[in-house]
């Protein structure tokens, strides 16, 4: 069962959303900067830019799987955590964002967000890449 969840962020985003649902096939739509999950599977030509690499780590179930909890535009997402929008505005300092991903319990000891760095779910390098991608959301 796939539940499609849409939220309205701003006027402009609404228009984009509307277009998106007209143009794209239902299900997993291109997210963020028009990225397609297929690029992550391309063994012959693996993504070279950090943003795309970060995107691939975010959507990989055994790595970030961030959309399991956070709504990420265009992905089948959970509703456990705040939607991933306007990250750049809300985290102008990348170090703070890195800290939140590396060990969210430092910010809030009761959080359910896994401590990705502290528990070695993601390496420091992987977290850096995720930061680059998430910043584009």
């Amino acid at each position: 069962m796939q539940k499609s969840t849409n939220i309205v962020i701003t006027g402009a985003a609404t228009v984009l959303l509307g277009l998106g649902s007209l143009l794209a096939a239902p299900g997993l739509q291109a997210a963020g900067q028009g990225l397609d999950p297929k690029v992550c599977k391309d063994k012959d030509n693996p993504p070279k830019d950090t943003v795309t690499q970060g995107y691939c780590l975010v959507i990989e179930r055994t790595k970030g799987n961030c959309m399991g909890c956070h709504l990420i535009e265009g992905m089948s997402s959970g509703n456990i955590a705040p939607p991933m929008v306007s990250i750049k505005q809300r985290f102008p300092e990348k170090a703070k964002l890195r800290e939140q991903i590396s060990d969210a319990t430092k910010v809030n000891p009761d959080t359910v967000m896994p401590p990705f760095g502290r528990h070695n779910i993601l390496s420091a390098d992987e977290i850096d890449k995720i930061v680059e991608y998430v910043w584009t959301l």
């Binding site: 796939q2 539940k3 909890c69 509703n79």
Partner: peptide, 19 residues
Amino acid sequence: NFACANCHMDLAGKNFGGN
């Protein structure tokens, strides 16, 4: 890093991954 209580108390009624 989850307790039983995290999923079945804090997050009860929520949807993980949309499905």
